[in-house]
């Protein structure tokens, strides 16, 4: 009895139609909160937060760089978790999630690398420094590229889903190992370099805007992923009756 209702819930969770109806309102919430948080955080961080005593104003790139770097990793881990669920429970919705996270994750990782490079110029005096975090993020970018290339190579939708879920899962398991080893490598080769964000006791006027920006980035990612997922669902379900009904209702409105 319990297992039957659980099973029904599971089917429900995996049903694109149900997901589509459920997230109708979520999109707006995520979109508006992203807008508010990002505008608020940007104005606060760029206009009102105090300048850094060592780096001057250039530290403000942090307000883009740190959220981007965090989000880049979260999106990959999200793909790994989605892949795990998809492989174990054969839930097709998870591939929609992976296909939505992948391009966004690649762009955000590139943004993290780029903003880090721009930040590195005034701080380290060079556009590129083989710092531990930089290398980790670069490897993360390669992990994204690998899945992207794999997806491009497989025509069959479901096999593509299974292959990318598998690789995302394996990549996610390896992320901590990669991070740890790169950190170890970094301490070995550059013991003198100081971390950009590991400042002793950053004053709250500096990190509160950062928190707002981080939240804003995550809300933005939620918005983009939801919109992409919904578009992908419509695309895959093109022939289904509920999609036609939905389109009809929308056009009559």
């Amino acid at each position: 009895m319990l297992s039957a209702s659980l099973k029904r819930l599971w089917h429900k969770l995996g049903s694109p139609r149900w997901f589509f109806a459920l997230t109708e309102s979520w999109v707006k919430v995520a979109g508006w909160s992203a807008l508010v948080l990002l505008v608020w955080g940007t104005i606060w961080g760029l206009g009102f937060a105090p300048a850094d005593y060592q780096q001057g104003n250039s530290f403000r790139i942090m307000y883009v760089h740190v959220p981007a770097a965090m989000l880049a990793q979260s999106l990959y881990i999200g793909m790994g978790v989605a892949g795990f669920i998809g492989l174990v429970w054969r839930m097709k919705l998870t591939d929609v999630a992976i296909s939505a996270c992948l391009p966004l994750g690649m762009v955000i990782t590139a943004l993290a690398l780029f903003s880090g490079s721009v930040w590195g110029r005034p701080t380290w005096g060079s556009w590129w420094e083989w710092d531990g975090r930089t290398v980790s993020t670069l490897v993360l970018f390669f992990l994204y590229v690998g899945i992207y290339a794999l997806r491009e190579a497989i025509a069959d939708q479901e096999l593509r889903a299974r292959a990318s879920a598998l690789i995302a899962m394996v990549g996610t398991i390896n992320i901590p190992i990669i991070k740890y080893s790169v950190e170890w490598w970094n301490t070995l080769h550059q013991p003198a370099s100081f971390g950009l964000t590991q400042k002793p006791a950053m004053p709250s006027e500096m990190w509160l805007p950062l928190l707002v920006m981080v939240l804003g980035f995550y809300a933005f990612a939620g918005f983009i992923v939801l919109v992409r997922m919904r578009t992908e669902i419509l695309n895959r379900e093109l022939g289904a009756r509920w999609v036609r009904d939905w389109v009809q209702v929308r056009s009559e409105r």
């Binding site: 690998g146 794999l150 190579a153 990549g171 390896n174």
Partner: peptide
């Protein structure tokens, strides 16, 4: 996952090289 492709070599490299990094670091170390 790449054995089914007629030319899987490059994709194979993209998939596994990042995973090889920790081995490279500690092996050389």
């Amino acid at each position: 996952v790449t054995v089914g492709f007629s030319r899987g070599g490059v994709i194979l490299a993209l998939l596994v090289m990042p995973l090889f990094l920790p081995t490279l670091i500690f092996g050389a170390g």
